[in-house]
Design a protein around this nucleic acid. Structure first.
Lengths: 158, 158
DNA sequence: ATAAAAAATGTATATATTTGCAAAATAAAA
DNA sequence: TTTTATTTTGCAAATATATACATTTTTTAT
């Protein structure tokens, strides 16, 4: 059912851009966007998305998407630019094929995997090509925007 | 007061080396070590230590120290069992995406290929991901059961 | 289209965690 | 030491989250 997927996406966005402190609060925000479900469903959704909670500066708990746990680690030290080596991105059906210069494929794939985007089920990297397998039912444009978030430097090329 | 500090240290150690799933459980383990406090105190201790919770492979929550969020799977020291590197299996359409710990993909793929199941047309293995391509028209559940036959130890996870 | 199977959800409830408040323990000041 | 302030803790109650079970919705197969 498409409604569930849409809701999961909405939850992800809400959690990413707000400090949501309880499932009740999340329920309220979802309702404003037209998603009407109970707290129990949200409990299941959060589990599905592997959402965890963290303490903010004031010691209050709020929800975080798992990817942002990784992001800081990845961005903290490495000043590497990641647009180096990129060649092209095209889709065949829903499958994405990202081409790189020889030898660069795995470094791109690792970034994608680390980001652990909900929309992307997995990648398989060869030497200069990555196959990107989207989660069932996720449209191409969502994959593109995921990739843009992972590779902000490539914004225009993706 | 020294007792509290000692207890906090003990908590840190317990959480780092065990999968503690509730404050009650933690209370029990602490008691065995001579620390006798109520669950309410542990709630405060965990907040103080900024301990968070995560979902394990089976979707159960357990406590993690904030540092170990970064360390990840680094400490895979134990001798690996045959099925040890398995992480997850999901499908996108009819394509299967099997994730493994880094480096283990090909060992899984080889076993799949060796089994030469009719239902599985072939596999493509990266470093930690295998793409499983089913024969045209073969339903997901048949792929799953093929994989169960190939990896009997993973019965529950597939 | 209809039946059968699987997935998603709500309701009510169980389980788990947090917190206000008062008491006890510890540290600091007189 | 005695007094006073601060920190720690327990208790009980409030919040918050998870889940068993029944029902509805969606998907798959016939």
């Amino acid at each position: 059912m498409k409604d569930r997927i849409n809701r999961l996406m909405a939850i992800r966005k809400l959690i990413t851009f707000n400090r949501i402190r309880s499932q009740e609060e999340l329920m309220g925000k979802l309702e404003k966007k037209g998603f009407r479900v109970t707290q129990a469903t949200l409990s299941r959704d959060l589990k599905f998305l592997k959402v965890t909670r963290r303490y903010d500066e004031k010691g209050r708990l709020y929800y975080v998407m798992p990817e942002s746990l990784h992001r800081e680690e990845a961005t903290s030290q490495s000043p590497l630019r990641f647009d180096e080596g990129f060649v092209s991105l095209e889709f065949s059906g829903s499958l994405g094929v990202l081409k790189t210069l020889p030898g660069y494929a795995s470094s791109f794939a690792i970034r994608i995997d680390r980001a652990a985007k909900f929309e992307i089920l997995g990648t398989v990297a060869g030497d200069d090509t990555i196959l990107i397998i989207p989660r069932d039912g996720v449209p191409v444009k969502d994959i593109r925007s995921s990739l843009k978030m992972i590779f902000p430097d490539l914004e225009e090329k993706l």
